[in-house]
């Protein structure tokens, strides 16, 4: 896969195969193209050359609507800065993802509450993003990403904006998810996070894959 922005080449012939249930960490210096890679997989952007195939579907060939449906059904995305809607409560932020698919409000909230229970933030369900801690916000973001039971969970620097304790909690959460079969692709600078959560490490530099390693689970 290639991705160019004008004169700049962000990805230059990257080739990767990820199997269901894998936990892959993508690492590399700033500007190496790891977030671009994640955006291509998430269908947030289209490659300039090559293809991204997820569950037999060529993402680059989808229409705008097709891409939206692809993101809705197959992808769960976690961002460094959470990207929650300030005007909605934590519960409504999470339920929103299901409601977009046409799920009735009551049913969506029930499913969101289950996730809040699982993630240990049930008592914060009616709080608004502005009053949540960084860790709590990221847990809400994780819950939102899991709402539609995605095939792929993509995380872009999920602990980058968190203190170490909150970061640890999020790492545990991702690890648990992978252990119950959730496919996970993680972009990070943090080698500790990569080793904790991923079974495979892909190194990128200047838009190219420079190395691939299998990781031993750390304690």
């Amino acid at each position: 896969m290639r991705k160019e922005y004008g004169e700049t080449t962000a990805l230059d012939g990257v080739s990767l195969e990820i199997r269901a249930g894998d936990a892959v960490a993508v690492m590399g210096p700033s500007g190496c193209g790891k977030s671009t890679l994640l955006n291509m997989i998430a269908g947030l952007d289209r490659p300039t050359g090559g293809s991204v195939v997820v569950h037999g579907e060529n993402v680059g060939e989808l229409s705008e609507k097709g891409l939206a449906l692809y993101r809705r059904r197959r992808i769960g995305m976690i961002f460094q800065f959470f990207n929650l809607i300030d005007d909605l409560s934590a519960l409504d932020n999470v339920a929103l993802a299901a409601q977009l698919t046409g799920t009735p409000a009551r049913q969506a909230r029930r499913r969101a509450l289950e996730l809040f229970d699982e993630l240990g933030i049930a008592d914060r369900r009616n709080a608004y993003p502005a009053v949540l801690s960084g860790g709590e916000r990221q847990r809400v973001a994780v819950a939102r990403a899991l709402m539609n039971r995605p095939a792929l969970l993509l995380a872009d620097e999920p602990t980058g904006a968190l203190d170490s304790r909150s970061g640890e909690q999020v790492m545990d959460l991702l690890l648990d998810l992978n252990q119950i079969g959730q496919t996970l692709i993680l972009v990070t600078h943090d080698e500790h996070l990569a080793r904790r959560c991923a079974s495979r490490l892909v190194e990128i530099a200047d838009g190219r894959v420079t190395g691939e390693h299998t990781l031993e689970p750390s304690a």
Binding site: D86, L88, S89
Partner: peptide, 24 residues
């Protein structure tokens, strides 16, 4: 521009989130 700000008309937003209207 980027920090979370306290939402406005929260009560209304909550009622709307629970309504039968399409979410958009």
């Amino acid at each position: 521009g980027s920090a979370p700000r306290a939402g406005r008309a929260l009560h209304l937003q909550r009622r709307l989130a629970g309504s039968r209207l399409p979410r958009s």
